[in-house]
Simulated scan of single mutants.
Amino acid sequence: MSAQHLKTASGASRSLARSRPRYGEVLVKAVLMLAALVSVATTVGIVFALLEPTIEFFGEVSLGEFFGSTTWGPLFNPPAFGVWPIIVATLEITLIAIVVAVPLGLAAAIYLSEYATPRVRKIFKPVLEVLAGVPTVVFGFFALTFVTPLLRDVFPFLELEAKNGLGAGLLVGVMIIPIVASLSEDSMAAVPNGLREGSYALGASKMLTSVRVVVPAAFSGIVAAIILAISRAAGETMIVAIAGGFKSVFTLYPGDEMSTMAAFIAQAGSGDASVGSIAYKTIFAVGSLLFIMTFAMNYVSARMVQKYREVYD
């Protein structure tokens, strides 16, 4: 090799070694770390905001009374603190929402991932995600003024109150369809095409390949989407407040008016409870319980994703 070539190679090596610091990358890294810290700090702040009033509440109301009674009326005189009516209402409406959202959301995800052409997918997926941007107050009034009267006309044997859990649950289900559909479609799109091609080579149809190959391969992402949708449904406020009502009575019939945990927080926080009173502290106790429930669901979701995640080369 000539001296000129050695000089050029040596110069290039020294040039690479003396490359300037990439301040842009450092700045991006700092911004991303700051965003992560803000998220963590917000969660910690919520915990601390709930903790002190919750401890004060349980200093006056025992856990036995809170979890051992089915009479709920912190704003009444005399007050009652049996939390089960609003827990059951929350679970009922969430269950109705999941029964609506999971089949429709998964069907939409399978269509977008396996059947739709790129042009159709480019149109339909943004339209579906726009549904998540509709204000929930609109869903609430739609359930109250259209869905409940429609249910009464179509199913006259149902004894539905003007505000009821069934209408609220159906619209909460419609609201969370984009969560299930979009996240599930993303998980299915990440499945390698080699699995599909292998299934087709064995003579499987597109439907069989979608149901028996693609969906199981994307199972962890689908489960995460469903649990995220459950958490969103459990914490929904405006739809259940407008269409479900504020009547806190222990009932298993979804046609009755009922109040969820989030709806109670909205009602009590609107000015009916004086600051520092036991009724005011009830807001934080119920908020802490709802926070623990959603945190537990998200934790289960994370564990299931780790357990069933498929790693492809």
Score class of each variant (00 low, 15 high):
residue 113 S to C: 04
residue 118 P to D: 13
residue 214 V to T: 13
residue 63 L to I: 12
residue 66 F to K: 06
residue 110 I to K: 05
residue 230 I to A: 15
residue 137 V to F: 02
residue 52 E to R: 10
residue 121 R to P: 04
residue 177 I to V: 14
residue 184 S to Q: 11
residue 177 I to S: 09
residue 203 G to S: 14
residue 49 A to D: 07
residue 115 Y to P: 02
residue 265 I to N: 05
residue 255 G to W: 15
residue 117 T to W: 08
residue 169 G to I: 14
residue 255 G to Y: 14
residue 240 V to K: 01
residue 215 V to S: 11
residue 284 F to I: 00
residue 274 S to L: 14
residue 124 F to S: 15
residue 162 A to I: 10
residue 276 G to V: 00
residue 185 E to C: 05
residue 41 A to V: 15
residue 58 F to E: 12
residue 80 A to P: 01
residue 20 R to K: 14
residue 158 L to R: 04
residue 16 L to P: 01
residue 303 R to I: 02
residue 84 W to S: 09
residue 292 I to D: 02
residue 312 Y to P: 07
residue 167 G to L: 02
residue 58 F to H: 10
residue 156 P to G: 13
residue 218 A to G: 08
residue 227 I to E: 05
residue 8 T to R: 15
residue 2 S to V: 00
residue 113 S to I: 00
residue 184 S to Y: 10
residue 132 A to L: 12
residue 280 Y to C: 01
residue 146 F to S: 09
residue 247 K to M: 12
residue 233 A to E: 06
residue 57 F to R: 01
residue 132 A to I: 07
residue 89 A to V: 03
residue 304 M to C: 05
residue 242 I to K: 04
residue 95 L to R: 06
residue 188 M to P: 03
residue 254 P to L: 06
residue 179 I to Q: 11
residue 250 F to M: 15
residue 50 L to C: 05
residue 229 A to T: 00
residue 188 M to R: 07
residue 2 S to H: 12
residue 252 L to K: 00
residue 173 G to L: 09
residue 238 M to D: 08
residue 278 I to K: 00
residue 220 S to A: 15
residue 129 E to R: 02
residue 41 A to G: 08
residue 127 V to R: 03
residue 224 A to F: 09
residue 59 G to W: 09
residue 209 T to E: 05
residue 26 V to A: 15
residue 67 F to W: 07
residue 223 V to D: 01
residue 132 A to F: 04
residue 224 A to G: 12
residue 1 M to H: 04
residue 215 V to C: 08
residue 277 S to K: 00
residue 171 L to D: 07
residue 288 S to K: 11
residue 62 S to L: 06
residue 203 G to L: 13
residue 113 S to P: 01
residue 36 A to E: 07
residue 200 Y to M: 01
residue 114 E to Y: 10
residue 175 M to L: 14
residue 47 V to C: 15
residue 171 L to E: 03
residue 260 T to P: 10
residue 7 K to M: 08
residue 171 L to V: 03
residue 223 V to S: 11
residue 43 T to F: 15
residue 247 K to E: 13
residue 158 L to H: 11
residue 303 R to W: 03
residue 17 A to W: 15
residue 236 E to N: 01
residue 146 F to K: 08
residue 122 K to I: 12
residue 300 V to S: 09
residue 200 Y to D: 02
residue 96 I to H: 06
residue 265 I to Y: 10
residue 222 I to F: 02
residue 191 V to D: 05
residue 149 P to H: 05
residue 245 G to Y: 12
residue 166 L to D: 07
residue 204 A to Y: 14
residue 289 L to G: 08
residue 9 A to W: 13
